[in-house]
Simulated scan of single mutants.
Amino acid sequence: MKVKIAYIEEPPFGWADVDHTVTGADIELAETVLRAIGVTRVEHHLTTFAELLPGVENGRWDMNVPLFVTPQRMTRVDFSLPVWAISDGFLVRAGNPMALNSYESLAQRDDARLGIIAGQVQHHAAQKAGVSDDQIVLFDQQAEAIDALLTGKIDAYASTALGNRILADRIGHELAAAVSHPTVNVEGDSSPTGAFSFKQGSHELKDAVNRQLRMYLGSADHRRRMSRFGLTENEIDPVVIG
Rank of each mutant, 00 (worst) to 15 (best):
P192F: 02
L81V: 07
G59K: 06
P97M: 10
R224V: 10
D207C: 05
A126M: 00
K128C: 08
P12R: 04
G230R: 06
I8Y: 09
G55E: 08
Y7N: 00
D147E: 15
S219W: 11
Q212G: 05
M98I: 03
R165M: 10
I166K: 05
A143V: 15
D88M: 10
P54H: 10
Y103W: 09
F13C: 04
A99S: 10
M74T: 09
G218A: 03
R60L: 15
P12Q: 11
R165A: 08
A16Y: 05
Q212S: 11
W61L: 03
A176V: 02
Y103Q: 09
S105M: 04
P97Q: 03
V184L: 14
D26N: 14
H173I: 06
F198C: 06
V39M: 09
V131S: 00
L52H: 01
P11E: 06
D140A: 08
D155R: 01
P192L: 05
V184F: 12
G130V: 12
V83Y: 01
I5Y: 11
S102V: 05
S87K: 08
V56A: 05
F68L: 07
S219Q: 12
G242P: 09
Q72K: 14
R113V: 03
S102G: 04
V83H: 00
D133K: 07
D207W: 03
S227K: 13
L53V: 15
L217S: 02
